[in-house]
Computed example of a mutant assay.
Amino acid sequence: MNIRERMEGEKLPMKLLLLADPSEEIVKEYVGRGYCYLTEIQQEIVGVYVLLPTRPGTIELVNVAVSEELHGRGIGKELVTDAIGRAKSKGYKTIEVGTGNSGIGQLALYQKCGFRITGVDMDFFIKHYNEEIFENGIQCRDMIRMALDLT
């Protein structure tokens, strides 16, 4: 498995990115402002994550996705771990992540990687997305905010 930064002009793996965020418009906007990393296995892109600088000393992990047929193999954890390492090597003091209240697996993954819950953006997904989102039989309404101190 190889994780590398997306090259300028390289086609976005939109199908993968949309697994983690259903709005193509929103995805294109933040990918354009951030760092996009691709995960390859035998030259096939099977994972992606995006780091987005937000404030001085802080970067946000805004999208983490792995091909559905490869779920449960630890690739997501490797991506999050890689993102933490890259954020630290770029000199950031804090890495943040936000995920939906219905993302039970994601909430567990981020906590296993050391993130702590710092807040809740009530009705975030109701206000910012045109269509209702359901995951694990739960309506995704609120953004659970988490952070990890890198110092």
Rank of each mutant, 00 (worst) to 15 (best):
Q43G: 04
Q43R: 09
V46Y: 07
V46F: 10
V50S: 02
L51M: 08
L51Y: 02
L52V: 13
L52C: 12
T54M: 14
R55W: 15
R55I: 03
R55L: 15
E60W: 04
E60Y: 02
L61M: 06
A65C: 13
E68L: 12
E68Q: 14
E69T: 14
E69M: 09
G72V: 07
G72C: 05
R73P: 00
G74I: 02
G76T: 09
G76N: 10
K77Y: 13
E78M: 14
V80P: 04
T81N: 06
T81V: 12
D82E: 04
G85R: 09
R86W: 03
A87L: 01
K90E: 03
G91M: 03
Y92D: 02
Y92N: 01
K93Y: 09
T94V: 13
T94N: 00
I95A: 02
I95F: 03
E96C: 02
E96M: 01
V97I: 13
G98D: 04
N101P: 06
G103N: 13
G103V: 00
I104E: 05
I104N: 01
I104C: 00
I104M: 09
G105H: 01
G105I: 00
G105K: 11
Q106H: 00
Q106A: 08
Q106Y: 00
Q106G: 07
A108K: 15
L109M: 05
Y110H: 07
Q111L: 12
C113H: 08
G114Q: 09
F115G: 05
R116N: 10
R116K: 14
I117D: 10
T118M: 11
T118E: 13
T118S: 13
V120E: 08
V120N: 04
M122K: 15
D123T: 05
F124K: 01
I126F: 10
K127H: 14
Y129V: 10
Y129L: 13
N130Y: 04
N130L: 10
E131H: 05
E131R: 10
E132Y: 03
E132A: 08
I133N: 05
I133Y: 04
F134C: 10
E135T: 03
Q139M: 10
C140M: 08
C140S: 05
C140I: 07
D142C: 11
D142I: 09
I144R: 06
R145D: 11
R145P: 09
L148I: 14
